[in-house]
Structures are given as C-alpha cells and as structure tokens.
C-alpha cells in the first residue's frame, strides 16, 4: 500500500471533503452587486481597469440573484428598498454570503434619518463589514480575501455552518436614543466632580 502511494507521488492530494468544497467555493465567488449609492461607484471602480477584481476570482458580476453566491450591499438601504433587498437575498441559492460595504450599509452612517435603515444586519445576515465612506477599492478587495479565508476555515459541504446561526450576525445594535441616554447617564456620573465650578 505504502509502496503504491509512493508511486502516485504528487498526483494525489489528501484532504477533507469540506476543505475541498470550500476551496472551490471561495475561489469562484460570483458577486451580486446590490449597488444603491456612492459605494456602488467604488464597487465599479474596483471591478474596472485599475483595481482589477478578477484577479481574485470574483469578476463575474451577475445581476440575477439566482446565479450569485455573494451579495455586496454597497450603499445605504432605505425603507422602500429593504423589502427588495430581503427578497433578493431570499432568491439567492445556498451557499451564499453577504458583504456589507460602507458605513451606510453597516450602521446607517451619517444618515441617521427617518427613512434610512440603521444597518442592514438588523434584517439580513451579514458575513463581512467594510468601514469607510465610501471604502476604497483596496478595502473591498481585502474584505473579499478575508471572506475567502472565512469560507475556507468554516465551510462545510452541507452548509451546517449556516444552520448554527439563529440570529442575524453582527454587532449588537442600540437605538440611537438609547445610546444618547447611556451617554448622558455616564456624563452625569463622571462629569460632576470634574466640571462643576464649585469644586
């Protein structure tokens, strides 16, 4: 047996099935550009001449959700758009991942207004966050590489890694007024001895 294996040499590779499947998946991510605003322009820049996204195996932008496995949400998502986003996410076939690109998609960014959803991770699962307003194309490429690592490290053939997650991923989010209330409490606790002129 050992003799026969030796004869085969480099033509045989020992690996786990999970790992092989993940390797294949991570190197052929087909993005679905859900570009709504400014970040969409940087997404275009990332896929065009100077920063060539195809070097990383994901230049095949497909605008039909049925053909994609990576959704890049680039730009703010507002009340009217969120049902569309959720529907497109549900139309994508497994396995699928989501990159939330830019401050607006991650947290609402500078738009803390009545119509902007304060972070898409409240309503759909997100795998990778990119900060920046808008992020540079290099940052998008970095996120893509990180996502590839994540797929390699956690991926399984039967997508059991997705079944474990019960809630949308991402940081725990507060309501804006909640944050303000907490800050005010802290200020009252901390600031009195320092800033009160009578002391």
């Amino acid at each position: 047996m050992a003799q026969q294996l030796k004869q085969l040499g480099d033509s045989v590779l020992w690996t786990k099935l999970d790992s092989a499947a993940s390797w294949a998946r991570k190197n052929s991510l087909w993005p679905m550009p859900f570009a709504t605003a400014c970040c969409g322009i940087e997404l275009m820049a990332a896929s065009s001449s100077r920063h060539d996204l195809s070097r990383f195996g994901s230049e095949v932008m497909r605008f039909s959700p049925r053909q994609c496995d990576l959704m890049i949400v680039a730009g703010r998502v507002v009340m009217k758009m969120l049902p569309v986003l959720q529907r497109i996410w549900q139309q994508m076939s497994e396995p699928k991942w989501c990159i939330s690109m830019g401050a607006c998609a991650c947290t609402g960014g500078v738009f803390d207004t009545y119509s902007v959803v304060q972070g898409i991770d409240r309503f759909i699962p997100v795998d990778m966050y990119i900060p920046g307003c808008p992020p540079r194309p290099e940052q998008l490429i970095r996120a893509l590489l990180d996502l590839q690592d994540k797929i390699q490290n956690t991926g399984t053939v039967h997508f059991t890694e997705f079944a474990k997650r019960e809630t949308p991923e991402g940081p725990v989010v507060f309501e804006a007024d909640e944050i303000a209330r907490i800050r005010n409490q802290d200020r009252m606790k901390l600031s009195l001895p320092i800033y009160n002129p009578r002391h």
Binding site: V78, M79, L82, P83, Q86, W89, Q90, D112, T113, Y114, S115, V116, V117, Q118, R122, F123, I124, P125, F162, A163, R165, E166, T167, P168, E169, A176, D177
Partner: peptide, 15 residues
C-alpha cells in the same frame, strides 16, 4: 429620526 418606521420590517435570520 422618525417614529420608528425605518425599523418596522421582518427579520430574516441565517437559518
């Protein structure tokens, strides 16, 4: 910041 309309949507979980 509105009256909460912006967050009046169903949540889709990973599972």
């Amino acid at each position: 910041q509105g009256r909460g309309e912006r967050h009046n949507f169903p949540v889709i979980t990973r599972a």
